[in-house]
Nucleic acid binder design. Structure first.
Lengths: 185, 185
DNA sequence: GTCTATAAAGTGATAGAC
DNA sequence: GTCTATCACTTTATAGAC
């Protein structure tokens, strides 16, 4: 639940209701996905009414984007620095993956949302498509540089290895953290 | 799209509207998940109205179950036979995984639904939970029998290897088949 | 900045004609 | 077996009071 830091009963929180709404939305999207989460559900979690939410975020979609954006900001410090090369870039991706392990709620949210965003009409579709393409490009480049520097075992082909690395990290984390593991059978 | 086998314009299909509705629902659930798919969307795909759908399936939930059930029937022949042991059981799981590759739509549906069904109140939650538990138990037993028969490399621990195998198969397929790969970053 | 009240549209489901 | 019409409910979003 969203921790409750209002000073007393009447004057709710002097500052950042906004941050509380984002936390509440994160939890709700996590549990039910984006479409199945109503503004009323989210508002209730943040202890306000739904027009209260819409004062801070013009639309439900804007709220979703704010949630994704917060996650981007939180993850920034552990993300590989642009310009980092080969072996070093691969190493810092491993560090980022380890960091994700401590963020169960966010990983869950991403799992639910990225599956839901499979449809091209979903508000987060572009977000996830771009994100994956960028990630893939980065990993691919890191592998390529690492190979050219002689850091890779001989028969590792960057174009094959990149999606494999991404897939491995995704699985390892999702299936230890989801309440119901993703199931392809 | 659902193939269109009505004889001509007026008398729609002599038989199985039911099967067509299931196909249409499968496509729709695939694209948008369960909750975001309306009976009207599904009905339009099957070229009827939404009360027409509800004549064949009493509720939307019953329709979901019919979709999942069809998938169970289709997959039955490639599923490991009960009583198959160790190495043989592991081998037939590999065969089942290969078969899944030819069923892009179903795999996509499962990916979307199982993520959505993470919440305990989702109609398919129990379905996926039970399914995963049964799958895990089977794989675990197969590994255990294989080890006792001396078929495994020494330090392979069944209790560790089973979820790893499941995870690997899931990832490999999901991320080559989904329009937007699952993303944990 | 948050509320009550409400609008406009969509939802699953039912009743009854044909 | 499929339709039209409709019900009761929920949704996102807006208007206006405080």
């Amino acid at each position: 639940m969203v921790e409750d830091d209002r000073l007393d009963g009447r004057q709710r929180r002097g500052r950042d209701t906004r941050a509380h709404i984002i936390s509440a939305a994160m939890e709700q999207f996590c549990e039910s996905g984006y479409r199945a989460s109503s503004l009323r559900d989210i508002a209730a979690r943040a202890d306000i009414t739904h027009p209260g939410v819409l004062y801070h975020f013009p639309t439900k979609e804007a709220l979703l984007m704010a949630v994704l954006q917060r996650r981007d900001e939180q993850g920034r410090e552990t993300r590989p620095v642009v310009g980092e090369m080969g072996r070093a870039a691969l190493a810092s991706m491993a560090a980022a993956a380890a960091h994700n392990e401590t963020q169960r709620a966010m990983v869950e949210l991403y799992a639910v949302l990225s599956a839901e965003a499979t449809g091209p009409d979903h508000p987060a579709h572009a977000y996830f498509t771009e994100r994956y393409e960028r990630l893939h490009a980065n990993v691919l480049e890191a592998y390529t540089v690492a190979r050219d520097a002689g850091d890779l075992v001989d028969d590792v082909e960057p174009r094959v290895a990149a999606p494999q690395l991404i897939a491995r990290i995704i699985t390892a984390h999702l299936n230890t953290q989801l309440r119901v593991p993703l199931d392809a059978f």
